[in-house]
Write a protein that binds this DNA or RNA. Structure first.
Lengths: 400, 400
DNA sequence: CGATTTAATTTGATTTCCAAATTAAAATCC
DNA sequence: GGATTTTAATTTGGAAATCAAATTAAATCG
């Protein structure tokens, strides 16, 4: 324990620096409760290890300071290199990040959509990493770790994929297999959890300890942050928001059950509703029904509007239930490409408010974050950053 | 911080002792990661302060030990006296507990059911405490703190009652007012949270860090434990399980909204359903409809059965959603008087399982806990115990 | 009764942290 | 421009806490 004390202190300061951007030592002391002397000592360790660096204070528009100017500390980007990978249904997307989270390169590769064995996937990933590193003029060997976001049920602590649409087999030791093939540590988690982590480390929830992120793509995901850490349930797999039940014996879901939220708001749900209408009710509904519904609704088509309205209502109800249960101060609606704008419309949010307001406390802040293509991969990269930082901090203690 | 270190250690050990019953020092060392030397020192502090005591090891059926026998440590019951109070709609119930959680006395007093001012309530409580202390042959002045369980929306940290059916006015500084009137610290929280705390300290969830408790009385409540602490939401008021929405534009709830879980499973929901049936469909439904429905269902009345089945289905769906979101390892269904046995029936739990099983991981353990009349008051007492222990530990540090 | 075994305590050294004093780096004053 | 003021960061010296190892304590076994 005697040794763990200093390590704990270093971890606290490292987190604080990462969460609160460039920060002066004196602020760190105030925030952490440690004395200034101790902060000097601990940050000296981190500086010596090259994990953080000093930067001249960016005065900004502030008044010219009076005494000795503060020296800000921040994460040293050059300290490590990590990669983030999202295994989607029809593509692999990757980012290369520096230790500060800055994007150095990105890559997208098409996939067949079929599930692969872990080994086959590992080979594809190895090749992709090679290309990714090349684009940034770096070598794969320089990368300290790979974060992986997969859909499905994942035990992130053990790197175990219980089930995923991307993998054949069940209960695959995916993190271990990847590490063996790639020669670097790999960290696997559910994709929605990782988006939440990214929001926490360098997104809209930076420095906040309790919030939740709803991801919307073709399915609906939920990432929870409670007490400053991702909440993963007691067996490593919670927050199946998409399969929360919103109606008894409701619409069939692709998970095999009925009445799931996803069965009302996902793209295939829109397609199902469109198919139930008389032929021709929605133009173009034959080819790509989901897109056709969205387009028709924009053009004012009544039937299409009704479909989207219903999806919005169900979504509002699901969100309201999250608020009722978690009482978060912040909800982030995160989307990648977001053709599903109708779910973020004011009427939906108003309806959600109506289903929750019971007290005079202010409603939770709701922010929409349109990440762009790399949302998932960046989330995975955030995971790698976090884990690689942990490893670096632990190693530091062994040698110091 | 240097002083806080020792205090932290003492807190850790105190919690460990409370959570793991009589425990030997050597086990404490193993569990806490502290050295045996440190454990000796810290427990000596606690012993000297009279917060814990040594007890001869209860060998039980174990093999006769070989070396020096372990000396178990446990919370010293005589250390403090606390009271727990539940303010219900039609009664005040109180318990007097010793520091180990043992019940010394209890008291139940009828209430008119009307909301009172905080001051009026405080006077009634003062009188009740007098009687309660008398029953145990103690004086009110000996009581170190009072825990209070109220229905409604409570900010436990600040002792603020945003709203409660028992109190007139809003945003009442109830803890402060009670402390002023009673001459002892008072701690106020939502009643379901406190039942969860009681399960954690001396109930079915003793020593477990992540679980949830569903309370069923006339309404439905939820208490969450996450990471070893009660989860209260970011503004001190989460977990409104009773008002989770289970149907779009569903049945009206007494909260003024529609489709709340409570509007399907509470006693008044049963009454509403019964009233919608043709007269005479359920015998005795005129006088006390909820009870009549329950009785008729037991006698095999079809219509009554259907009402209860529906309530059970909705309840199963609500539970399943909790499992989907929290992935708890343990769910406790806690009831006081429990005329609502139908909600605990196997078919309901099976249905719940069916709405969640998607993986090969084992389903969460579900346990039914029929506390008896004092469930709520004991929960409040548990809160007082916890807070009084915190005060004692903090004080210990000031003087040591 | 001595040997053995295991638990708990004591001892001595080390680590860690903090308060106070000191040094550092700027702006302001005269 | 140099002295003064102000604030930040570091150094210093001492106090506190922890741990490993040695010692003591309390039991059983042969």
């Amino acid at each position: 324990m005697t040794v763990l004390q200093r390590e704990t202190g270093r971890r606290v300061l490292f987190r604080e620096i990462r969460a609160n951007g460039p920060v002066a030592r004196i602020d760190l002391a105030a925030r952490s409760g440690l004395s200034r002397a101790t902060v000097t000592g601990l940050t000296a360790d981190l500086l010596r290890a090259g994990l953080i660096e000093e930067v001249a204070r960016d005065g900004g528009d502030a008044a010219p300071a009076r005494g000795r100017p503060r020296v800000d500390l921040k994460i040293r980007g050059a300290a490590r290199l990590v990669a983030g990978l999202r295994i989607g249904t029809d593509s692999l997307s990757l980012v290369l990040l520096d230790f500060g989270g800055a994007r150095l390169a990105e890559l997208e590769q098409p996939m067949t959509g079929e599930a692969l064995t872990a080994e086959a996937l590992a080979k594809r990933i190895a090749a992709a990493l090679e290309t990714l590193a090349q684009r940034a003029g770096r070598a794969v060997g320089e990368i300290s770790g790979l974060g992986v976001a997969v859909a499905g049920v994942v035990d992130a602590v053990r790197g175990l994929v219980h089930w995923s649409p991307s993998l054949t087999g069940r209960n695959v030791e995916f993190a271990q297999i990847l590490a063996d093939h790639l020669g670097m540590p790999a960290f696997v988690d559910n994709d929605a959890n990782l988006v939440a982590l990214a929001e926490s480390l360098f997104g809209l929830a930076r420095g906040r300890s309790d919030f939740l992120v709803v991801t919307i793509e073709s399915g609906v995901g939920l990432g929870l942050f409670i007490g400053g850490r991702p909440y993963r349930g007691t067996r490593g797999c919670g927050a199946e928001f998409g399969h929360v039940k919103v109606e008894l014996d409701g619409a069939p879901c692709r998970c095999g059950q009925r009445g799931c939220l996803e069965a009302y708001v996902a793209d295939y749900a829109l397609a199902r509703e469109a198919a139930a209408l008389p032929a021709g009710a929605i133009p173009g509904a034959m080819d790509d029904p989901a897109t056709a519904v969205l387009a028709a609704a924009r053009d004012g088509n009544r039937a299409a509007r009704r479909i989207l309205d219903r999806a919005g209502q169900v979504f509002a109800m699901g969100l309201a239930n999250l608020v009722n249960l978690f009482d978060p101060s912040l909800i982030i609606l995160a989307g990648e490409r977001m053709p599903l704008d109708h779910l973020y419309d004011d009427p939906v949010l108003e309806r959600m408010q109506a289903l929750t307001t019971r007290t005079d406390r202010p409603p939770p802040e709701i922010r929409v974050h349109k990440w762009g293509d790399l949302m998932w991969a960046r989330g995975a990269g955030a995971f790698a950053l976090d884990e690689v930082a942990n490893i670096a901090l632990a190693a530091l203690d062994g040698t110091a």
